[in-house]
Design a protein around this nucleic acid. Structure first.
Length: 876
DNA sequence: GGTTTCACGC
DNA sequence: GACGTACGTGAAACCA
């Protein structure tokens, strides 16, 4: 059985280009269309298993259709150069994959596909056409099916005749009649003005074809419609003609010659590597190995068995080689060292038995270049060593230069700067179950390469930081902050295991009761945690109204369930079950799992080089999302306790720091005044937006105003605001407009920052933190809108992040200066949590707000609220 | 092991 | 006219 696959190469490339963000490789070659095209191609080959395969392309600008209508495709924008430059790459790729491609002067890909599909039909082959263009549906028959890209590029809808009929209520061949009436704005086919899909289908159902309609115009119902048809008859006939695919195009290619045999050559894998399609390399059976170009470059290194003073220079690159992600549990494999003298690997036994080496590690006066200062420092702290004299952190530098680089992996950072002899840890050690440590020779080589690369990278990165005006941000903020965060992580926060366990027992009881109750109400037992099973129960068995669907089934999210409240008592129970289940699995069981066996405390990991805005994130466990809003969850905080007897937990948070930052950046008089007068900002916003006096602000008005402020801070859209308030998008848009009317400075800022982002390609924060926004010029509305909101939001959120980071560095210094025993333990974006002896609380009440409020002088005062108690829960 | 859905915080 | 919409982390189900 012959199976022919015909791919609309031009159409798919076009779709891929617009569906994917503008990727490029390290040489600046754009690759998104090639990437999308290739993933689609691999998927099609895998699922369709074609015996014959051809990719058809459009040829040139003019086609035979222009003879009929010279305006054909006249409104189409010129193909963007970022896309055109990728088309030769796609052809090269097809050649390497042994896939034939074809184009014919004066014809479009559609005509080639149409002609070949009909020839194949004659021979009794089955054909699959792959395209993004609905016009191709006219080719569907008993032997030909059409796959239409849905969204993205690999998501396809398969159309056979029945599916076409289901969708359009007409035979596939009548798609051309449909186009004749409707026209097609993207091809500049006029059709009959005022006739859309609905009317066209109605006419075709009644008359059968476009010609039949015009033969019996009198039978058309509706005077207006009749007039429109009469006036545009010629245009309609021509439109149909334009939309008709030529199935007798002079295609000089034999079907039998289109055989396809899957072969993936070395050359193909080279091309994939060049384009940086590493995920696709695996799919074609070429695992990216550590071999390849890295090992071809020789790096001389030595394994040290004794440590000579002469090797330990003031200026050196140092790597502390550990494998574990979680460095609180890390085993040190050894050290890499690179300096003027050469590159070395120091095995752990040699290192730890050398007093010389250990004192060098702890020597403040050296200038060490490291890859991840916090990681190295904390890992060594667990070994009782204080890493000192760190002068440069490669990860942090790379992060500040461009936070969007998806991995600040050393090999990637190096490769982008043309240093190619170092390979990534993942490639060297493998990942997941495949991870293993090679023998010492290889290990030594790898580690030494890393150290060498770091030594070489430091001046390059330092210069880039300087160019970006980020030197001070780097040396004076992020670098010292890394040590402060390291101390917080290493110190850890104490947790009462018994409190957690008691809460767990109680929760489990409640969950069992709830589960029974829910099963009884549903009349059957099922897994409430499974959205799939829950959806079937609610929407099929119990016939509750479907509010929203996900791509795999019914949505059962909280906002959907809330809309169903009142329909059935089961809803409330499910919501409660979800809430308690979350508390139990994530917080009770989750936290119990991560208590460190050596300290009995919880040691989180702050990620300092991750978020696009400059905020920190926290993992293993995440201590930045411990419940607070609902009382049941808030009780979790009772388990967070001081580590010593007679100590207290002390918490201080910034009040409205983002909106204060906004007032400052936007220089909005109204907003500045409000903060200077220390007004309740949501009430103030409500007064301005609704035009009422303070006393007339209702709680609903305040709630709406609060959501608008929230939206400003987080950069949500009118849609997002409408969702959170349960109002229409239009109303949400009006709220935002009224807000901007009330705060003209903010409006001006929003306009200007978008202009600036378009001009510079990036936005910055108060301390010159940078975020690039390449999509701000995207032709895709969604992408562009998202980039615009990001441009408005990042300086606000990022500057707030800058400020609390400044406060943390000052705070650590201040605690030391005053010789306080208090420990700074946690940061939750706008708040700091400490533990301290009772007798220091009075002092903290003064200095913590003082340090935080004076971290950075703005045009409005910063305000901090502090509290304390026996547990984190009580510090409210 | 990867993806999807849901839910927690700011 | 539709698109699919703050950022993070983590658990569980489900599919392969």
């Amino acid at each position: 059985m012959k199976k022919l696959v015909l791919i609309d190469g031009s159409g798919i490339a076009y779709r891929a280009f617009f569906a994917l963000p503008l990727l490029n490789n390290d040489k600046g070659v754009y690759t998104n269309a090639v990437y999308g095209f290739t993933t689609m191609l691999l998927k099609i080959i895998e699922t369709e298993k074609p015996t014959h395969l051809l990719v058809a392309f459009d040829a040139g600008k003019t086609t035979f259709r222009h003879k009929t209508y010279k305006e054909y495709k006249g409104t189409r924008q010129k193909t963007p150069p970022e896309l055109s430059e990728q088309l030769p790459l796609i052809r090269e790729l097809l050649d390497l994959m042994g896939i034939q491609h074809y184009e014919k002067d004066q014809y479009e890909a559609d005509d080639i596909i149409g002609t070949l599909s009909k020839q194949a039909q004659q021979k009794g082959w089955t054909t699959k056409v792959v395209t993004g263009d609905k016009d191709l549906l006219q080719l569907v028959d008993d032997k030909v099916t059409v796959s239409l890209t849905r969204k993205g590029i690999t998501d396809m809808d398969d159309y056979d005749a029945a599916k076409v009929f289901e969708r359009y209520e007409i035979e596939p061949i009548r798609i051309i009649d449909l186009k004749g009436f409707m026209g097609d704005s993207s091809d500049n086919i006029p059709g009959v003005p005022g006739v859309g899909e609905k009317t066209a289908i109605k006419l075709l159902k009644q008359f059968g074809s476009l010609e039949a309609v015009f033969e019996d115009l009198e039978a058309v119902s509706g005077k207006k419609l009749k007039e429109k048809l009469e006036a545009n008859q010629d245009q309609a006939v021509m439109s149909k003609q334009l939309a008709t695919i030529d199935i007798h195009a002079p295609v000089d290619i034999e079907l039998d010659r289109l055989t396809y045999q899957q072969t993936f050559s070395q050359e193909l894998s080279e091309l994939f590597k060049e384009l940086e399609f590493s995920s696709l390399l695996n799919r074609i059976g070429f695992e990216e190995t550590i071999a390849g170009e890295s090992q071809e470059i020789e790096v001389k290194s030595e394994v040290l068995t004794t440590i000579e003073d002469s090797l330990l220079l003031k200026e050196s690159a140092l790597t502390v080689e550990i494998l574990e992600e979680n460095y609180h549990y890390a085993e040190i494999l050894g050290f890499g060292l690179a300096n003027e003298k050469g590159c070395y690997f120091v095995p752990k036994d040699v290192a730890f038995s050398s007093e010389r080496f250990k004192s060098w590690l702890q020597d403040e006066t050296t200038r060490k270049i490291v890859y991840d200062r916090k990681r190295d420092r904390v890992a060594l702290k667990w070994q009782g060593l204080e890493l000192k004299g760190v002068h440069f952190d490669i990860t942090l530098a790379s992060y500040l230069i461009d936070p969007s680089e998806s991995n600040h992996d050393l090999a990637a950072i190096a490769k982008r700067r043309d240093i190619k002899y170092v390979y990534s840890d993942e490639a060297f050690y493998g990942k997941g179950a495949k991870q293993q440590i090679p023998d010492e020779d290889k290990l030594a080589d790898h580690v030494a390469r890393k150290a060498k690369a770091m030594l070489e990278l430091e001046p390059l990165l330092a210069e880039e930081l300087e160019e970006n005006h980020q030197s001070s941000l780097f040396y004076e903020l992020e670098m010292p902050l890394a040590d402060v965060l390291g101390e917080m992580e290493f110190k850890g926060v104490d947790i009462s295991e018994t409190t957690l366990k008691d809460m767990g027992v109680e929760l489990n009881d409640k969950l069992i009761q709830l589960e029974k109750h829910i099963h009884a109400l549903a009349g059957t037992e099922f897994n409430i945690n499974s959205p799939k099973q829950l959806g079937e129960i609610l929407f099929e068995k119990m016939n509750l109204p479907v509010i929203k669907k996900t791509k795999t089934g019914y949505s059962t999210s909280a906002d959907v369930l809330e809309k169903l409240q009142g329909h059935h008592e089961i809803i409330d129970k499910i919501l409660e079950y979800r809430q308690l289940g979350k508390l139990n699995s994530t917080y009770i069981e989750g936290l119990l799992k991560v208590i460190h066996p050596k300290t009995g405390k919880i040691h989180t990991l702050y990620r300092q080089a991750l978020t696009q805005t400059g905020r920190l994130s926290s993992t293993d466990p995440n201590l930045q999302n411990i419940p607070i809003r609902l009382e049941e969850g808030r009780k979790i905080r009772k388990a967070f306790i001081p580590s010593k007897k007679d100590w207290m937990m002390f918490a201080a948070d910034y009040s409205q720091i983002e909106l204060r930052v906004l007032a400052h950046i936007a220089e909005d008089e109204n907003l500045i005044k409000a903060f200077k007068e220390d007004m309740d900002i949501h009430t103030k916003t409500a007064m301005d937006v609704f035009g009422v006096a303070e006393g007339e602000v209702t709680s609903l008005m305040r709630r709406h105003a609060k959501a608008v402020n929230f939206g400003i801070v987080y950069g949500i859209s009118d849609y997002g605001l409408s969702q959170s308030l349960g109002i229409t998008r239009k109303e949400a848009g009006e709220f935002i407009e009224k807000y901007l009317d009330s705060y003209p400075g903010v409006r001006r800022y929003m306009t200007e920052i978008v202009q600036q982002a378009k001009h510079d390609g990036y936005v910055t924060t108060l301390l010159h933190r940078r975020r690039y926004l390449p999509e701000i010029t995207s032709r895709n509305f969604n992408r562009r809108s998202f980039a615009e909101r990001t441009a408005m939001n990042t300086p606000i959120q990022g500057s707030a992040a800058d400020i609390i980071k400044l406060a943390m560095v000052s705070m650590a210094e201040r605690l030391k200066e005053e010789q306080l025993e208090a420990n700074m333990l946690l940061q939750v974006h706008d708040e700091l949590i400490f533990e301290a002896p009772k007798h220091e609380i009075d002092r903290l009440k003064i200095i913590v707000p003082e340090v935080m409020e004076n971290a950075k002088a703005l045009k409005v005062p910063l305000k901090v609220e502090a509290s304390y108690g026996q547990t984190w829960y009580d510090a409210k």
